[in-house]
Simulated assay, not measured.
Amino acid sequence: MANGETILVTGVSGFVGAAVARVMAAEGWRVRGLARATSPATNLQNFPGEIVRGDMLDRASIERALEGCTALAHVAADYRLWAPDPEEIVRHNREGTRAVMEAALAAGVKRIVYTSSVATIAPLDGGAAGEDRPLTEQTAIGAYKRSKVVAERLVEQMVAEQGLPAVIVNPSTPIGPRDVKPTPTGRILVEAATGKIPAFVDTGLNLVHVDDVARGHLLALEKGVPGRRYILGGEDVSLQEMLAEVARLVGRKPPTIRLPRLPLMPLAVVSEAWGRVTGREPMLTRDALRMAKYRMFFSSERAKAELGYTARPWQAAVADAIGWFRQEGMIG
């Protein structure tokens, strides 16, 4: 229990940030949530604390938000797998993290959880990767992965050189309620539930309920070692299995056509070009196809052993996600 201490949670209008704020409040923290003025309001309704307006790229707004806080959960990030200017994603996540962490040091915050991603970890061919396989900026595929690698290395450097009291958590692929935008994985669930994904590529991912990820943040805040990384994952699942489970939940036939990756590259090029014209994120990108070569399977054994972390079955996470999308009218 936090005994009424105040924690700042950034990115509370977003998917993971909203879940983290609710878990912290339930554990006795006084929650102050940082959200941009332009953020969607869905996850701010019935918020269990105080909302302050600001931006992770605005150092002054971060400093104001941190006044009186003894802890920080920096969850906010530019979570786009594609942008017309890919370097914008890298700049946002690097400079936003720098601004937040420097402000936290200046404010004397005692405990920090920084939300990274398994995007910073090299997948293991034929197995589940752990925290001992860090990617470099040069080996990361795509702007989003590079941005998270750069930001994570910045936090590690500040821990080592400036005594930043930050524990790093690496969520795998969170799904569940309150996925307002939705996230790239949430979008796949919606598209699959509405019958718009008739085929699949042979790949896999580690699915975890967003509320389990949020609970992992709390455990990391309480028990984690500064500078140490903890994968917050669930279960390894093939894309075909996930799509079949969605089909079962909504009463559709599961897709059975397996598509090879390389012949899809020209379609990805066209999709990206159209995205640059319209400004909308393309459904298929070259980076996504490159990443699909690897099964993104990960191990949470360190978090289980050192933090007491647990996660529910992946099917429950899919069911909660589909139920929320249906409730919000995103699935008919």
Rank of each mutant, 00 (worst) to 15 (best):
A99H: 13
A129K: 02
T136N: 13
E235F: 05
D58C: 14
Q240G: 04
E222G: 01
M265I: 07
L105Y: 12
V277K: 13
V167K: 05
F15Y: 07
I175S: 03
A76D: 12
E222M: 04
A19H: 00
G14L: 05
P134M: 01
L124V: 10
A60M: 03
S39H: 00
A35F: 13
E156K: 01
T256R: 11
P313C: 06
Y79M: 06
I168E: 02
M296P: 00
W314S: 07
M56F: 14
D85A: 02
A104E: 12
I188A: 12
L307E: 06
N43K: 09
A160R: 15
P174Q: 10
M56K: 05
C69P: 04
E156D: 10
A247I: 13
F298S: 08
P165R: 05
Q45E: 15
H217N: 05
R248Y: 15
F298L: 09
Q162K: 14
T310C: 10
G96E: 00
R53Y: 13
A143W: 00
A268E: 12
R326P: 02
E281M: 06
A143S: 00
A288Y: 04
A128K: 09
A151R: 01
V16D: 02
E152H: 00
P263F: 04
V250C: 04
G275T: 14
M56Q: 11
T173A: 12
R94H: 10
G275M: 12
M265Q: 01
S299G: 00
Q240H: 11
I141C: 02
T115P: 10
R32T: 10
P198Y: 10
R36Q: 04
K293S: 13
A247N: 11
A76G: 13
V201N: 12
L221Y: 03
T120R: 00
T38Q: 14
A151W: 00
E137C: 07
A305F: 01
P282H: 11
L189P: 09
R312E: 10
R295V: 07
R276C: 13
T278A: 10
M56H: 08
R133D: 07
I322W: 01
P40G: 15
T10K: 11
V90S: 00
G33I: 02
W29E: 03
G195R: 15
R302F: 07
V16R: 04
N93C: 02
A160S: 13
R187Y: 13
R111K: 15
M242N: 12
N43C: 10
A99S: 08
K223Y: 09
W314M: 07
E222S: 03
